[in-house]
Amino acid sequence: MRARRHRAHELHRGERIWRDGAGPVDLWIELLHGNGLDPHAGLAFTVTQDFEDDQFTLARLPQEDIEKLYGLQVQELSVFDSLEERAMVQTRRGNIVLVEVDAFFLPDTRAPSYRSEHAKTTIGIDVIDPDAKRLGYFHHTGYHLLDDDDYDGVLRTSPAHAAEQGGAAGTVHGQALFPHVEFAKRVRDPLAGTALAEVSADLLCAHLLRRPMHNPIERWRAAFPEHVDTMLSRGEAYARLCACNVMHPLGANFELLAHYLQWMREHGFDIPVSTHLGARRIASEAMVMQCRLARALSHSKRDLCDASFDAMQEAYDRVVAPLAAIVC
Protein backbone atom coordinates (compact mmCIF):
# COMPACT_ATOMS: atom_id res chain seq x y z
CA MET A 1 0.00 0.00 0.00
CA ARG A 2 1.47 3.35 -1.05
CA ALA A 3 0.91 6.63 0.72
CA ARG A 4 -1.36 8.94 -1.21
CA ARG A 5 0.32 11.99 -2.69
CA HIS A 6 -0.63 14.65 -0.19
CA ARG A 7 0.80 18.07 0.45
CA ALA A 8 -0.51 19.97 3.46
CA HIS A 9 -3.13 22.62 2.72
CA GLU A 10 -1.98 26.24 2.51
CA LEU A 11 -3.65 26.90 5.88
CA HIS A 12 -0.99 24.62 7.37
CA ARG A 13 1.97 25.89 5.37
CA GLY A 14 4.13 28.96 5.59
CA GLU A 15 4.17 31.41 8.45
CA ARG A 16 1.62 30.58 11.14
CA ILE A 17 0.95 32.27 14.46
CA TRP A 18 -0.22 29.02 16.06
CA ARG A 19 1.73 26.08 14.70
CA ASP A 20 -0.61 23.64 16.44
CA GLY A 21 -4.06 24.92 15.65
CA ALA A 22 -7.42 23.46 16.58
CA GLY A 23 -6.98 19.67 16.38
CA PRO A 24 -10.45 18.63 15.13
CA VAL A 25 -10.48 21.46 12.57
CA ASP A 26 -6.93 20.70 11.42
CA LEU A 27 -8.00 17.12 10.72
CA TRP A 28 -10.97 18.25 8.61
CA ILE A 29 -8.87 20.82 6.74
CA GLU A 30 -6.54 18.08 5.53
CA LEU A 31 -9.32 15.54 5.00
CA LEU A 32 -11.27 17.96 2.79
CA HIS A 33 -8.13 19.13 1.00
CA GLY A 34 -7.07 15.52 0.42
CA ASN A 35 -10.38 14.93 -1.36
CA GLY A 36 -10.05 17.95 -3.64
CA LEU A 37 -12.27 20.29 -1.59
CA ASP A 38 -11.61 23.82 -0.33
CA PRO A 39 -11.70 23.87 3.50
CA HIS A 40 -11.79 27.68 3.70
CA ALA A 41 -15.54 27.65 3.08
CA GLY A 42 -16.17 25.65 6.26
CA LEU A 43 -14.60 28.16 8.66
CA ALA A 44 -17.64 30.44 9.12
CA PHE A 45 -18.39 28.83 12.50
CA THR A 46 -15.35 30.53 14.07
CA VAL A 47 -17.41 33.67 14.82
CA THR A 48 -19.38 31.72 17.47
CA GLN A 49 -16.50 31.09 19.88
CA ASP A 50 -17.40 31.96 23.47
CA PHE A 51 -15.76 31.97 26.88
CA GLU A 52 -17.14 29.10 28.96
CA ASP A 53 -15.99 30.43 32.37
CA ASP A 54 -12.90 28.18 32.47
CA GLN A 55 -12.03 27.73 28.78
CA PHE A 56 -12.82 28.92 25.28
CA THR A 57 -15.12 26.92 23.04
CA LEU A 58 -13.17 24.26 21.16
CA ALA A 59 -13.27 24.90 17.42
CA ARG A 60 -15.17 22.21 15.52
CA LEU A 61 -16.71 22.17 12.03
CA PRO A 62 -20.48 21.65 12.39
CA GLN A 63 -21.65 18.50 10.66
CA GLU A 64 -24.53 20.41 9.07
CA ASP A 65 -22.04 22.80 7.42
CA ILE A 66 -19.93 19.90 6.15
CA GLU A 67 -22.96 18.36 4.47
CA LYS A 68 -24.23 21.62 2.94
CA LEU A 69 -20.87 22.66 1.54
CA TYR A 70 -19.16 19.41 0.67
CA GLY A 71 -21.94 16.83 0.34
CA LEU A 72 -20.37 14.71 3.09
CA GLN A 73 -22.60 13.27 5.78
CA VAL A 74 -21.10 12.20 9.10
CA GLN A 75 -22.74 9.25 10.82
CA GLU A 76 -21.91 7.27 13.93
CA LEU A 77 -20.46 3.85 13.19
CA SER A 78 -21.62 0.92 15.29
CA VAL A 79 -18.65 -1.24 16.29
CA PHE A 80 -20.35 -4.47 17.30
CA ASP A 81 -17.48 -6.91 16.96
CA SER A 82 -14.17 -5.64 15.57
CA LEU A 83 -13.05 -2.08 14.92
CA GLU A 84 -10.73 -3.40 12.19
CA GLU A 85 -13.57 -5.21 10.41
CA ARG A 86 -16.01 -2.31 10.58
CA ALA A 87 -13.36 0.17 9.40
CA MET A 88 -12.45 -2.11 6.50
CA VAL A 89 -16.09 -2.27 5.36
CA GLN A 90 -16.40 1.53 5.29
CA THR A 91 -13.04 2.33 3.70
CA ARG A 92 -13.77 -0.18 0.93
CA ARG A 93 -16.94 1.82 0.26
CA GLY A 94 -14.76 4.90 -0.18
CA ASN A 95 -15.76 6.40 3.18
CA ILE A 96 -13.48 8.00 5.77
CA VAL A 97 -13.56 6.42 9.24
CA LEU A 98 -13.16 8.94 12.06
CA VAL A 99 -11.97 7.17 15.20
CA GLU A 100 -10.70 8.35 18.57
CA VAL A 101 -7.39 6.57 19.16
CA ASP A 102 -4.42 6.59 21.50
CA ALA A 103 -1.71 8.95 20.21
CA PHE A 104 0.81 6.57 21.78
CA PHE A 105 0.59 4.52 18.56
CA LEU A 106 0.73 7.39 16.04
CA PRO A 107 4.24 7.79 14.57
CA ASP A 108 3.41 11.22 13.14
CA THR A 109 3.08 12.74 16.62
CA ARG A 110 6.12 14.62 17.80
CA ALA A 111 8.03 13.43 20.86
CA PRO A 112 7.20 12.85 23.62
CA SER A 113 3.75 11.51 22.62
CA TYR A 114 4.77 8.64 20.36
CA ARG A 115 5.40 5.52 22.39
CA SER A 116 5.73 7.48 25.61
CA GLU A 117 2.41 9.20 26.44
CA HIS A 118 -1.18 8.04 26.24
CA ALA A 119 -3.52 10.74 24.91
CA LYS A 120 -6.79 10.72 23.00
CA THR A 121 -6.87 12.11 19.48
CA THR A 122 -8.98 11.60 16.37
CA ILE A 123 -7.73 10.32 13.02
CA GLY A 124 -9.45 9.87 9.66
CA ILE A 125 -8.69 6.44 8.16
CA ASP A 126 -9.14 6.14 4.40
CA VAL A 127 -7.40 2.86 3.54
CA ILE A 128 -6.57 -0.38 5.37
CA ASP A 129 -4.44 -3.35 4.31
CA PRO A 130 -5.00 -6.07 6.95
CA ASP A 131 -2.56 -8.52 5.32
CA ALA A 132 0.33 -6.07 5.50
CA LYS A 133 -1.04 -4.57 8.77
CA ARG A 134 -0.85 -1.03 7.39
CA LEU A 135 -3.29 1.85 7.25
CA GLY A 136 -3.34 5.39 5.87
CA TYR A 137 -4.84 8.20 7.89
CA PHE A 138 -5.34 11.95 8.15
CA HIS A 139 -4.21 13.49 11.43
CA HIS A 140 -3.61 17.08 12.48
CA THR A 141 -1.90 18.82 9.56
CA GLY A 142 -1.07 15.92 7.25
CA TYR A 143 -1.55 12.42 5.89
CA HIS A 144 0.43 9.47 7.24
CA LEU A 145 0.96 5.71 7.22
CA LEU A 146 1.41 3.35 10.13
CA ASP A 147 1.99 -0.40 10.35
CA ASP A 148 2.82 -3.46 12.46
CA ASP A 149 2.42 -2.93 16.22
CA ASP A 150 1.07 0.59 15.72
CA TYR A 151 -1.63 -0.94 13.49
CA ASP A 152 -2.54 -3.39 16.27
CA GLY A 153 -2.55 -0.61 18.85
CA VAL A 154 -4.78 1.78 16.89
CA LEU A 155 -7.29 -0.88 15.79
CA ARG A 156 -7.04 -2.95 19.01
CA THR A 157 -6.49 -6.14 17.07
CA SER A 158 -4.88 -7.96 20.01
CA PRO A 159 -6.41 -8.65 23.44
CA ALA A 160 -3.44 -6.98 25.12
CA HIS A 161 -3.95 -3.69 23.28
CA ALA A 162 -7.71 -3.77 23.83
CA ALA A 163 -7.29 -4.41 27.53
CA GLU A 164 -4.61 -1.72 27.91
CA GLN A 165 -6.70 0.98 26.23
CA GLY A 166 -9.90 -0.21 27.84
CA GLY A 167 -8.33 0.21 31.24
CA ALA A 168 -7.63 3.85 30.48
CA ALA A 169 -11.03 4.56 28.95
CA GLY A 170 -13.14 2.35 31.19
CA THR A 171 -14.58 -1.15 31.07
CA VAL A 172 -17.94 -2.84 31.48
CA HIS A 173 -17.87 -6.18 33.31
CA GLY A 174 -14.16 -6.49 32.55
CA GLN A 175 -14.58 -5.96 28.80
CA ALA A 176 -12.79 -3.10 27.04
CA LEU A 177 -15.09 -0.42 25.67
CA PHE A 178 -15.04 0.38 21.96
CA PRO A 179 -13.96 3.93 21.06
CA HIS A 180 -16.33 6.49 19.59
CA VAL A 181 -16.28 5.99 15.81
CA GLU A 182 -17.92 7.93 12.96
CA PHE A 183 -17.68 7.75 9.20
CA ALA A 184 -18.03 10.38 6.50
CA LYS A 185 -19.82 9.34 3.32
CA ARG A 186 -20.66 11.15 0.09
CA VAL A 187 -24.40 11.86 -0.18
CA ARG A 188 -24.36 14.56 -2.87
CA ASP A 189 -21.93 16.44 -5.09
CA PRO A 190 -19.86 19.13 -3.35
CA LEU A 191 -20.32 22.79 -4.11
CA ALA A 192 -17.57 24.70 -5.89
CA GLY A 193 -16.73 28.18 -7.11
CA THR A 194 -19.35 30.89 -6.66
CA ALA A 195 -21.97 28.49 -5.29
CA LEU A 196 -19.56 27.36 -2.55
CA ALA A 197 -18.75 30.93 -1.52
CA GLU A 198 -22.41 32.00 -1.51
CA VAL A 199 -23.54 29.11 0.70
CA SER A 200 -20.58 29.78 2.98
CA ALA A 201 -21.73 33.41 3.27
CA ASP A 202 -25.21 32.19 4.22
CA LEU A 203 -23.65 30.00 6.90
CA LEU A 204 -21.61 32.96 8.16
CA CYS A 205 -24.80 34.97 8.60
CA ALA A 206 -26.46 32.08 10.45
CA HIS A 207 -23.46 31.67 12.75
CA LEU A 208 -23.28 35.41 13.45
CA LEU A 209 -26.85 35.19 14.74
CA ARG A 210 -25.48 32.64 17.23
CA ARG A 211 -22.52 34.77 18.30
CA PRO A 212 -21.95 35.51 22.02
CA MET A 213 -24.20 38.23 23.41
CA HIS A 214 -21.25 39.90 25.13
CA ASN A 215 -17.56 40.25 24.32
CA PRO A 216 -16.12 36.89 25.54
CA ILE A 217 -12.65 38.36 26.03
CA GLU A 218 -14.09 40.93 28.42
CA ARG A 219 -15.78 38.10 30.34
CA TRP A 220 -12.50 36.18 30.43
CA ARG A 221 -10.73 39.26 31.77
CA ALA A 222 -13.18 39.44 34.69
CA ALA A 223 -12.37 35.83 35.63
CA PHE A 224 -8.64 36.08 34.97
CA PRO A 225 -7.37 37.26 38.38
CA GLU A 226 -8.83 34.15 40.01
CA HIS A 227 -7.35 32.00 37.24
CA VAL A 228 -3.89 33.48 37.83
CA ASP A 229 -4.12 32.82 41.57
CA THR A 230 -5.04 29.20 40.87
CA MET A 231 -2.14 28.79 38.45
CA LEU A 232 0.28 30.24 41.01
CA SER A 233 -0.97 27.88 43.69
CA ARG A 234 -1.07 24.74 41.53
CA GLY A 235 2.18 25.22 39.63
CA GLU A 236 3.64 25.03 36.15
CA ALA A 237 1.96 21.80 34.99
CA TYR A 238 -1.51 23.20 35.68
CA ALA A 239 -0.60 26.52 34.07
CA ARG A 240 0.34 24.68 30.85
CA LEU A 241 -3.02 22.92 30.85
CA CYS A 242 -4.78 26.27 31.26
CA ALA A 243 -2.86 27.75 28.35
CA CYS A 244 -3.81 24.77 26.16
CA ASN A 245 -7.50 25.28 26.94
CA VAL A 246 -7.76 29.07 27.07
CA MET A 247 -5.16 31.05 25.11
CA HIS A 248 -4.43 28.34 22.55
CA PRO A 249 -8.03 27.74 21.38
CA LEU A 250 -8.73 31.47 21.37
CA GLY A 251 -5.68 32.32 19.27
CA ALA A 252 -6.01 29.36 16.90
CA ASN A 253 -9.72 30.05 16.32
CA PHE A 254 -9.18 33.69 15.40
CA GLU A 255 -6.26 32.85 13.15
CA LEU A 256 -8.66 30.59 11.22
CA LEU A 257 -11.27 33.37 11.18
CA ALA A 258 -8.69 35.77 9.71
CA HIS A 259 -7.95 33.31 6.91
CA TYR A 260 -11.67 32.83 6.29
CA LEU A 261 -12.38 36.56 6.03
CA GLN A 262 -9.51 36.98 3.58
CA TRP A 263 -10.91 34.10 1.50
CA MET A 264 -14.32 35.79 1.47
CA ARG A 265 -12.72 39.02 0.26
CA GLU A 266 -10.97 37.11 -2.52
CA HIS A 267 -14.37 35.75 -3.59
CA GLY A 268 -15.83 39.21 -4.02
CA PHE A 269 -17.54 39.82 -0.68
CA ASP A 270 -17.27 43.30 0.79
CA ILE A 271 -15.52 42.29 4.01
CA PRO A 272 -13.65 45.22 5.63
CA VAL A 273 -9.91 44.76 5.97
CA SER A 274 -10.29 45.88 9.59
CA THR A 275 -12.15 42.67 10.49
CA HIS A 276 -9.38 40.52 9.02
CA LEU A 277 -6.70 42.54 10.80
CA GLY A 278 -8.65 42.45 14.06
CA ALA A 279 -8.92 38.66 13.97
CA ARG A 280 -5.18 38.36 13.36
CA ARG A 281 -4.51 40.76 16.22
CA ILE A 282 -6.41 38.52 18.63
CA ALA A 283 -4.50 35.48 17.37
CA SER A 284 -1.09 37.12 17.75
CA GLU A 285 -1.84 38.83 21.08
CA ALA A 286 -3.06 35.54 22.57
CA MET A 287 0.37 34.09 21.75
CA VAL A 288 2.12 37.12 23.28
CA MET A 289 0.00 36.76 26.40
CA GLN A 290 0.75 33.04 26.72
CA CYS A 291 4.50 33.72 26.67
CA ARG A 292 4.25 36.70 28.99
CA LEU A 293 2.18 34.82 31.53
CA ALA A 294 4.53 31.82 31.45
CA ARG A 295 7.48 34.09 32.25
CA ALA A 296 5.62 35.75 35.12
CA LEU A 297 4.50 32.45 36.63
CA SER A 298 8.01 31.02 36.40
CA HIS A 299 9.08 33.83 38.75
CA SER A 300 5.95 33.42 40.94
CA LYS A 301 4.68 36.83 39.82
CA ARG A 302 1.03 37.82 39.47
CA ASP A 303 0.68 39.41 36.04
CA LEU A 304 -2.87 40.29 34.94
CA CYS A 305 -1.73 41.00 31.37
CA ASP A 306 -3.73 44.23 31.09
CA ALA A 307 -2.04 45.37 27.86
CA SER A 308 -2.89 42.11 26.11
CA PHE A 309 -6.49 42.23 27.28
CA ASP A 310 -6.83 45.85 26.12
CA ALA A 311 -5.59 44.87 22.65
CA MET A 312 -7.76 41.76 22.32
CA GLN A 313 -10.95 43.36 23.62
CA GLU A 314 -10.59 46.28 21.22
CA ALA A 315 -9.83 43.92 18.34
CA TYR A 316 -12.86 41.74 19.09
CA ASP A 317 -15.10 44.81 19.04
CA ARG A 318 -13.73 45.57 15.55
CA VAL A 319 -14.48 42.07 14.24
CA VAL A 320 -17.63 40.22 15.23
CA ALA A 321 -20.35 42.82 15.78
CA PRO A 322 -19.34 44.97 12.76
CA LEU A 323 -19.20 41.81 10.67
CA ALA A 324 -22.76 40.96 11.69
CA ALA A 325 -23.91 44.45 10.80
CA ILE A 326 -22.42 44.12 7.33
CA VAL A 327 -23.18 40.51 6.41
CA CYS A 328 -26.58 39.89 7.98
Rank of each mutant, 00 (worst) to 15 (best):
M1N: 02
M1A: 04
R2M: 06
R4M: 07
R5Q: 13
G14E: 01
G14V: 02
R19M: 08
D20H: 08
D20W: 08
A22V: 10
P24G: 11
P24C: 09
W28E: 03
W28C: 01
E30M: 10
E30R: 07
L32R: 10
H33A: 14
H33N: 14
L43N: 11
F45V: 08
Q49F: 01
Q55N: 04
T57Q: 00
R60T: 12
L61M: 11
Q63A: 12
E64V: 12
E64H: 11
D65L: 04
E67Y: 06
K68G: 03
Q75I: 05
V79T: 09
D81K: 12
S82H: 11
E84D: 11
E84N: 07
V89Q: 13
Q90M: 11
R92L: 05
R93M: 07
N95W: 01
I96C: 07
V99W: 03
V99I: 12
V101L: 00
V101R: 01
A103K: 03
D108K: 03
P112A: 08
R115D: 01
S116F: 01
H118D: 08
A119I: 05
T121E: 00
G124C: 07
G124Y: 13
D126T: 12
D129W: 01
D129F: 02
T141M: 07
L145A: 05
D150P: 05
S158R: 15
T171Y: 09
H173Q: 10
H173D: 14
H173Y: 13
H173T: 10
Q175M: 01
L177R: 11
F178L: 13
V181P: 05
F183C: 04
R186E: 08
R186A: 12
V187H: 12
L191K: 00
S200L: 05
A201I: 04
D202C: 04
C205Y: 10
A206S: 13
R210G: 01
E218C: 09
A222F: 06
A222T: 14
A222P: 03
A222S: 12
F224D: 01
F224V: 03
F224N: 07
H227W: 12
E236I: 15
E236W: 15
A237Q: 10
Y238N: 00
Y238C: 00
A243T: 09
N245K: 02
H248R: 15
L250F: 00
G251H: 00
F254A: 02
L256T: 05
Q262N: 08
M264R: 15
H267C: 00
G268T: 11
V273C: 06
A279T: 14
A279D: 06
R280W: 02
R281S: 09
E285S: 11
E285Y: 01
V288R: 08
M289D: 00
C291A: 13
L293C: 06
L293A: 06
L297M: 06
L297K: 01
S298V: 05
E314G: 14
A315P: 04
V319I: 12
V319N: 05
V320K: 00
V320E: 03
L323A: 08
V327Y: 04
V327H: 04
V327K: 10
